[in-house]
Design a protein around this nucleic acid. Structure first.
Length: 421
DNA sequence: TCTGGGGTCCTAGGACCC
DNA sequence: TCTGGGGTCCTAGGACCC
């Protein structure tokens, strides 16, 4: 029963760039990543010319020869186009997992089985017409199989494919190498081949799952289930809260001074913190890592990281930047040419920890509600925390202790004033 | 030759995804 | 000259506890 669809945008970043350049519709296009270093998206026409991830500078000649148009990435644009595409998809299902910027899984249980393929063709037309982005859609009972079906769909003019029956899926699986199966990468496919003689998707589907579980661990055993049509990767219809936020980039040129490193690390921290605040989260730990360019074998190599735990979860930008700069100083080694740095915020928690308590008590009894809030904050963060969380409104925090209640309770750490206790 | 056993927490690292 | 960035999950192994 194919009740799941994977809707995958074709060459998404390139398609976004083409929205404003109709002259490029049938020309090869690539989008280059940070500092125009390497290829992150290729149009169908560009795929035979340059591999994905290829460094642009090594392919200058080919790009010129075939008239490939190279764009610098514009993630703000892609995000905007993505949300339009996702919103068209949402009209066709009540349950949608936005898996990445360019693909969604759609639960089609609500559509009668005989009408699903037609509905997906309609969806494909709607996205093309309303947003201008081509998509391919695969239908199957599980995520891994629907991913496979969407690959087949990409080669079909109609752009939608569902396996007629298990035998049809097996036919495709028998000619699909293991490393083209979702979540079976190069390392696992090598292990499958060398240790168990498994090379095709069909062999993997029919493999001894106990042996797979023992040798290649849980993730591959799940893939085997999925290939057999048994869902092992659940649909996540609401985005789970982030567990970590990272900002890591190459500098674009080699950096040798601590001052330059600290400036970059401060920028990266600000960037990561913006995302932290947008998600109404606080972090308990920040870490900074520095590294040299592994391709420059002529230069001394060095990589190091430094972890800074905070005594209280925070999203206060000056503290985060100060911590990041200090961490960079800790691991800085003079005489090294640095290539890249990263800032990671982890131990993330919601900054709306106390909202539940606000509404737990008698809604008319403001004082009791406030005391419940205070108790919840103190239970979580200790006594001093109240001064951070309960300010705002018309009364200063100390007045709350004297029953002069504020009409408004701050419940978000990101709303908190800068003042420290 | 034997070397307690069961549990948790943390970190590092591998593997994979787009 | 120039070689991406942002995530998740899983496991192994060490530290520590009783």
């Amino acid at each position: 029963m194919s009740n799941l669809a994977l809707c995958d945008c074709d060459s998404f970043y390139c398609s976004c760039e083409r929205l404003f350049r109709s002259d490029l519709t049938h020309r090869p296009v690539v989008v280059a990543g940070n500092n125009d270093g390497c290829v992150v998206s290729r149009s169908k026409e560009a795929k035979p010319i340059i591999p994905t991830g290829a460094p642009i500078h090594e392919y200058r000649r080919q790009l010129q020869e075939y008239g490939v148009v190279v764009f610098s990435s514009n993630y703000a644009l892609y995000q905007e186009v993505s949300s339009r595409v996702q919103s068209v998809m949402s009209r066709y299902t009540g349950k949608q997992e936005i898996f990445s910027i360019d693909e969604s899984f759609l639960d089609l249980s609500a559509i009668p089985p005989g009408e699903r393929a037609a509905a997906m063709s309609e969806l494909r037309g709607a996205i093309l017409h309303e947003v201008g982005i081509p998509v391919s859609i695969g239908l199957a009972p599980t995520k891994v199989l629907s991913k496979l079906a969407s690959h087949v769909a990409k080669s079909l003019p109609e752009g939608v494919h569902g396996f007629a029956d298990a035998a049809a899926a097996d036919d495709i699986l028998s000619i699909t190498p293991c490393d083209e199966i979702w979540y079976v990468g190069p390392a696992r496919s090598r292990q499958l081949r060398e240790e168990m003689g498994i090379t095709s998707g069909l062999q993997l589907k029919r493999a001894d799952i106990i042996r797979i579980r023992r040798r290649l661990h849980v993730p591959v055993a799940r893939i085997v289930c999925e290939l057999r049509g048994i869902p092992a990767l659940p649909l996540h219809t609401s985005a789970p809260a982030r567990k970590e936020i990272m900002c890591a980039r190459a500098f674009g040129k080699l950096v040798t001074t601590l001052a330059d490193l600290q400036e970059a690390v401060a920028r990266y921290t600000a960037d990561a913190t913006r995302r932290l605040l947008a998600g109404h989260q606080v972090c308990g730990t920040l870490s900074v890592s520095l590294m040299t360019n592994g391709f420059r074998t002529d230069l001394p190599q060095y990589r190091a990281s430094c972890i800074v735990p905070f005594d209280r979860p925070t999203n206060y930008i000056p503290d985060l930047i100060t911590a990041a700069r200090a961490a960079a100083a800790q691991i800085f080694k003079p005489g090294i040419s640095y290539y890249r740095a990263g800032v990671m915020l982890s131990d993330l928690d919601s900054d709306t920890l106390i909202q539940g308590s606000l509404f737990a008590d008698d809604p008319d009894d403001k004082q009791r509600r406030l005391l419940a809030v205070i108790a919840a904050i103190e239970a979580k963060f200790g006594k001093g925390a109240i001064y951070f969380a309960a300010t705002g409104g018309s009364s200063p925090p100390w007045a709350m202790r004297q029953n002069q209640l504020s009409p408004r309770y701050l419940t978000r750490w990101s709303d908190l004033p800068v003042a420290r206790a």
